[in-house]
């Protein structure tokens, strides 16, 4: 038995040494929001071309960029997905590891919805309502803040129902949370006159005020699993949940999205840019790997084809909100010409 095991150990070490040759399979890492779209393209790509299906890992936007920027060569990924734009610091980190050629691809938009059960009435909110209901500290007169005292929606805005504020949302590690804080919370926060002025005077204080979500139990961190939030909303008609548009799209018979700034979170409203809480989605490609790892160019062509990311493409069926025609054309040209990232 020991002989057998030793033999296998030697065999497996031989197998390892065989890996050193060039990779023939694209490796994608990054955002869990882009994951369903990237995987859909990867699957089609593998089935319709002679290339292997790319391996797509779900590591989160930040984690993906970290792996992406760690170097050039077979053991580093070729593409990383991101539910936010790459940061200057990340570009710098990439450059310090020799990665200067990066192709940026914007694939479309994702709406973030505040939804509740269909058993309850549709809520009509302004961004200011959202901020006042969910912030840790709220402004109290010129230049002063206090701990958020609001317990019900009515206290936030007299036109809202007198129901307890109870919102289930993603944890701080999630890209959805980052985008929600930036678009909805900050959007409502800067509606208050003196806070807007504060941005210029003291950026740090402004950010702390606008970006901090309350921790007294009115906002409940529900984990990364959005299906779970949908189930909880169904069980508790008083609660609200924050998640991506694709989950609303799939569960429209159970939950409804709140109207924000007079706009309902529908496919059309998000595509037109009318719905205020939507964010662009990206992926980034390492130029040095194009031509080395087979299939990258073809993968880009598949991703940016009309049948994938167009208004009637298969990605829109998965919940991706396509870019307007002109913008799409523009990105298509830039991507397939492998234009370098411009910050």
């Amino acid at each position: 038995m020991i002989k057998k095991a030793l033999g296998l150990a030697i065999l497996s070490s031989v197998a390892v040494s065989g890996v050193a040759e060039a990779r023939d399979q694209i490796r994608v890492v990054g955002s869990s929001t882009v994951f369903p779209f990237a995987t859909a393209v990867a699957e089609r790509f593998g089935k319709t071309t002679s290339f292997k299906s790319p391996v797509v890992e779900s590591t989160g936007s930040g984690g993906g960029l970290k792996l992406f920027c760690s170097g050039i060569g077979d053991k580093h990924p070729d593409i990383t997905n991101a539910s936010r734009r790459i940061k200057k610091s990340e570009v710098k980190k990439c450059a310090s590891n020799g990665i200067t050629g990066i192709v940026e691809v914007k694939i479309g938009y994702d709406g973030i919805v505040i939804a509740n059960s269909r058993k309850a009435a549709v809520m009509k909110l302004s961004l200011k309502d959202v901020f006042l209901a969910l912030a840790k500290n709220v402004p109290a007169g010129e230049g002063k803040t206090r701990t958020n005292p609001y317990k019900t929606w009515k206290e936030v805005n007299a036109s809202l129902p007198a129901a307890k504020i109870e919102v289930l949302g993603p944890p701080p590690t999630s890209g959805t949370r980052d985008a929600f804080v930036e678009l909805a919370m900050e959007g409502g926060c800067k509606k208050i006159g003196w806070v807007k002025a504060l941005k210029k005077k003291d950026k740090k204080a402004y950010k702390t005020l606008c970006h901090t979500i309350r921790e007294d139990g009115a906002f409940i961190e529900a984990g990364e699993n959005d299906n779970l939030i949908v189930q909880k909303l169904e069980a508790n008609p008083k609660a609200f949940g924050i998640f991506g548009f694709s989950f609303l799209d799939q569960n429209a018979d159970k939950v409804q999205g709140s109207v924000i700034k007079g706009q309902a979170p529908t496919f059309e409203n998000i595509a037109d840019g009318k719905y205020p809480v939507s964010r662009p989605l990206f992926f980034y490609v390492k130029k040095a790997h194009v031509g080395k790892v087979s299939g990258i160019k073809e993968f880009l062509a598949e991703f940016t084809s009309e049948k994938a990311w167009g208004p009637e493409g298969y990605l829109s069926e998965k919940g991706l909100i396509p870019m307007p025609d002109a913008e799409r054309m523009d990105w298509h040209k830039k991507v397939n010409g492998l234009a370098n990232l411009a910050m």
Partner: peptide
């Protein structure tokens, strides 16, 4: 933790 369509055939396949 990855999306794998192709069934792995060896110890080093993703």
């Amino acid at each position: 933790v990855a999306f794998i369509v192709d069934v792995p055939q060896s110890f080093t396949d993703p």
